[in-house]
Computed example of a mutant assay.
Amino acid sequence: MDSLFVAVSCLLFGVLLRRLGRLPEGADRTISGVVIQLSAPAVCFIAARNMPISAEMLLPASMAWIIFAGGLAFFGLAKRLFGLTRETFGCLMLTTALSNVVFIGLPMIEAFFGHELVYVAFLCDSPGTSLVLAIPGVLLAAHLSPFERREGGPAKQVWLALKRVFSFPPFQALVLGLALRGVVLPDWLLKGLGHIGMTLVPLSLFSVGLGLALKPPKGAGRPLALGLAYKLVLAPLLMLGVIVFGFGNTGPVAQVAVFEAAMPPMVLGGILATDNGLDPKLASLLVSVGTPLAFLTLPLWRWVLAGL
């Protein structure tokens, strides 16, 4: 309960300070940078050293690929039924067919499942969400973008996206932590990294709160409803069906994989949609409305998973 209190209060405090104008413009991006460069790598390094290595790890690693494929089917059908534009279809895919597994997922896992399962978020991210965004996500954005094809074409864009994945500090910390699993490190170093990692939950949710800009949907009601219905309800339902009927596994790691599928729309996916002219206003709405709404749906999903 104390972790949940920290998560909710930091998010709301960020929203409050944004409305009061107490911090300079762009403060949310600065704090996000601190989380990515300092807090998350410390947590990731410790998690990589301590997490169990087993075939069960394939569950969280496959989560992003499963819900992205489900999004293709769901939004493809919605495109035909409701006449969605190419730009709106691409926006929905890049934001709501991918989960915010780091900035929201990490603190929410700690709050609802405990610190010992935080490592599952990194398994959902590095081989999952980041690669889905970097490869099929970038290819889809390049294909649907109304802008002229960028120099080098989609192949170059995929390569640049992959470079960003491999240079992502939490990913590098994960690889380093795995490489040093058998090496005895001094207690002061591990404890120090643990203390640095404790800043992850408050800073990440504070930065998310600072970045939220809730606005009423102007003519975007249907795609907004479709996107949030898939992201917050249908995507975790799909993942739940896969882990129960496909893998026959309802253990803690499998439950966290479903829980990560229920996270709000992906911020980086929204940025990619915006950069490619894929309904930028809808992308902003999906993130801004979906994030606080997830704070209502995530406790319900935790209740459902507790009954498995």
Rank of each mutant, 00 (worst) to 15 (best):
M1I: 12
L4W: 01
A7T: 13
S9H: 03
L11E: 09
R19D: 13
L20K: 14
R29D: 12
L38S: 12
L38P: 10
A40H: 12
P41K: 14
P41Y: 11
V43N: 05
I46Y: 03
M51A: 11
M51P: 05
S54W: 07
A55L: 15
M57V: 11
L58G: 06
P60F: 07
I66T: 02
I66E: 05
A69E: 00
F75M: 00
L77K: 08
L81V: 15
F82V: 12
T85L: 10
R86F: 13
G90V: 05
T95L: 02
V101F: 10
L106T: 05
M108S: 07
E110K: 10
F113E: 00
H115P: 14
H115T: 15
L117C: 08
Y119I: 10
L133I: 14
G137A: 05
L144H: 07
L144D: 10
P146M: 14
E148G: 15
G153F: 11
A155C: 13
V158Y: 02
K163V: 15
R164S: 15
S167Y: 14
S167E: 13
P169L: 13
G182C: 02
V183G: 05
V184Q: 13
D187C: 05
L205R: 01
L210S: 00
L210A: 08
A213R: 14
A213D: 13
L214M: 02
L214E: 09
K215D: 13
P216I: 13
P216N: 12
P217A: 13
A220D: 15
G221Y: 13
R222F: 12
P223A: 07
A229F: 06
L232N: 06
M239W: 03
L240D: 03
L240K: 01
F245G: 08
G246R: 02
G246Y: 06
N249C: 11
V253R: 01
A257M: 04
V258R: 00
F259K: 05
E260S: 11
D279M: 10
D279Y: 14
S284L: 14
L286C: 08
T291H: 06
P292W: 04
P292M: 04
L296V: 09
W301C: 00
